[in-house]
Design a binder for these strands. Structure first.
Lengths: 339, 339
DNA sequence: TTGAAAGCGCTAACAA
DNA sequence: TTGTTAGCGCTTTCAA
């Protein structure tokens, strides 16, 4: 293994000059710097991270905790986060908790001491999670706790747009098919939709219970939606919408004519399925990138003794309505006709 | 921060006893061990990983390099790998290289020194990748280099099954829509299909060039498939199959009647799209788990005192044909008849 | 069975 | 601008 000593010897300088030349180039004469760099490159020197961490107290790596990597939503966020971490020259530990609050707390406890900070994406048990972190830099994605930096999408605005779209098509009774019970995103989306509907006295929202945020959840919800008498439905995410459409079709119902469906997230499945889903688009990759940026900011800002993290709160990311083929004007069933 | 010294003081022993009691309990009298453990728990002691790594030379973490986390294939592998790493009490660094060979080599160079070993999933530049590892434990997934442990699926068997299925339906001209040029999986699948067809003199395989392993790749391939005169097609993966179906439909062709389509991987999109895809199923999660198991075995094999795990070469994972609705007997267009 | 002591490779305070 | 030096917290001989 090549160490600073080898590089120092080869470049004819001391080990501290090597360290400086590599970590704080401006503190070294340019000629020396070049000599050191060349020697390092020649010998194939790679700094030992463990030693640097031990000595300097920061690890150059961050953590990302997500409920389920197989969910395209979180995969996209993870991709953005990891990309940005790389650009910051840092590593990223990604941990998938399988939607399990116990695993989540456990993951954080394991991650916290060996990283410079953690991004918690859609935490399933935020209080416990934050406890496990004891004071380490953290950024919340899709969650909200007083005093903790967070990054989120503008769900309220999105739902507003979705509802206006449906209303303009002539829908007056809209169902909402919710996600996991503990989910903060679910509460936000639900509240956003209800709030939007409150502005009009000709639109009513029917809220339906907690469903798994996957295809199965949508399948399970479909019959309730039909029974609710709604002519349009907004789902917690695209996967749920896909399951919903699937089950409706199995019952002989047509989307969008018998029921209009709006998904959420515009994950890539939305455009693959039949019919392609009208959905709310969030730039997930960007969400991941932002989260890491904020973490880096608060991890390097909050380093000083005494003063707390200043890091301004970022504005929510825009949520855009993407209209595809799963929404249309309702068909009037005047008296049980087959049309 | 609580250190071994604090625990030692509190338990009335030396720091070496603390270290031993925690890391090698059998080398410490049970009474002492208990005392140390209690003290550690009381003080909330968490070993400093960096220090342990620096001193002991192993990190308790592994690396996983994948080309694209947003691809459900790799997401599934990553999930399995991370699950298994957790069960081994180790961490897992997941790095997404965006299908870029340079980033791949770079990722490995960064990962290698700070992990106990790396899983390379579908490497895009294996030779460079292995070079960057210089001798560290590694396991290849979907790749093959002499002398390097690997985990793979039985693509040959899978292709055999796919071809038999198509032949039984009455197809005699089958196209193969390939994945990335550098892809080992692509070569395997291609060769498996060609090999299978060689057993029958009434089936012919038409090989089509390299396409991106995504929806766009399938869209790009569709017109070539039609022009090839094949009545059935096997694609590099499900995503490509989805793109293919999409483009065929846009041209007014029907799947499966005008063309039968077989996907690969049975990623969850396969059952979501219309028509649901006939595809080759690989248990990806298991693939990820196996890879980590092999890595752990070979990483600790070199170090262990006695003869514990001899790391046998794992047999390829079964590949199963899942028949859904995208395959059917070919329709005879004898002279433009509509049947 | 336990303790003393020697570093692992690096950074950063201090000196020159 | 550069060098000297003292550890960071831990594991692991070696002795007792």
């Amino acid at each position: 293994m090549v160490t600073v000593h080898d590089v120092a010897r080869s470049a004819g300088v001391s080990i501290s000059t090597v360290s400086r030349a590599l970590a704080a180039p401006e503190k070294v004469a340019s000629a020396t710097r070049e000599r050191v760099r060349r020697a390092a490159a020649e010998l194939g020197y790679r700094p030992n991270r463990a030693a640097a961490v031990l000595r300097a107290g920061r690890s150059g790596a961050y953590g990302l905790v997500v409920p389920d990597l197989a969910n395209p939503y979180f995969a996209a966020v993870a991709k953005g986060a990891q990309e940005r971490a790389r650009e910051h020259g840092a590593g990223l530990f990604i941990v998938d908790t399988d939607e399990d609050p116990d695993l989540e707390a456990e993951a954080i406890r394991a991650l916290a001491p060996q990283t410079d900070g953690v991004v918690l994406c859609s935490p399933r048990a935020a209080d416990r999670a934050l406890g496990a972190l004891d004071g380490r830099p953290v950024v919340l994605v899709n969650h909200d706790v007083a005093g903790v930096p967070a990054v989120e999408a503008d769900h309220r605005g999105g739902m507003q747009r979705a509802l206006e779209h449906l209303r303009a098509l002539g829908h007056h009774r809209v169902a909402y098919v919710g996600g996991p019970e503990r989910s903060w995103s679910d509460r936000r989306r639900r509240a956003g939709l209800v709030e939007a509907s409150a502005r009009y006295d000709d639109v009513e929202v029917v809220e339906l219970g907690a469903f798994r945020p996957r295809v199965e959840g949508g399948q399970a919800a479909a019959d309730l939606v039909v029974a609710s008498g709604a002519t349009a439905v907004v789902t917690f995410n695209d996967l749920v919408a896909v399951g919903l459409v699937d089950r409706l079709r199995a019952r002989g119902l047509d989307v969008p004519h018998d029921l209009s469906v709006v998904g959420c997230d515009d994950s890539y499945v939305a455009s693959l399925v039949t019919p392609p889903l009208t959905t709310l688009r969030v730039d997930l990759r960007r969400l991941g990138r932002h989260a890491v940026d904020r973490l880096v900011a608060s991890a390097s800002g909050g380093r000083s003794t005494g003063a707390e993290t200043p890091v301004p709160d970022a504005p929510p990311l825009d949520v855009e309505l993407v209209v595809r083929s799963s929404t249309a004007p309702p068909v009037r069933h005047s008296s049980g006709g087959t049309l």
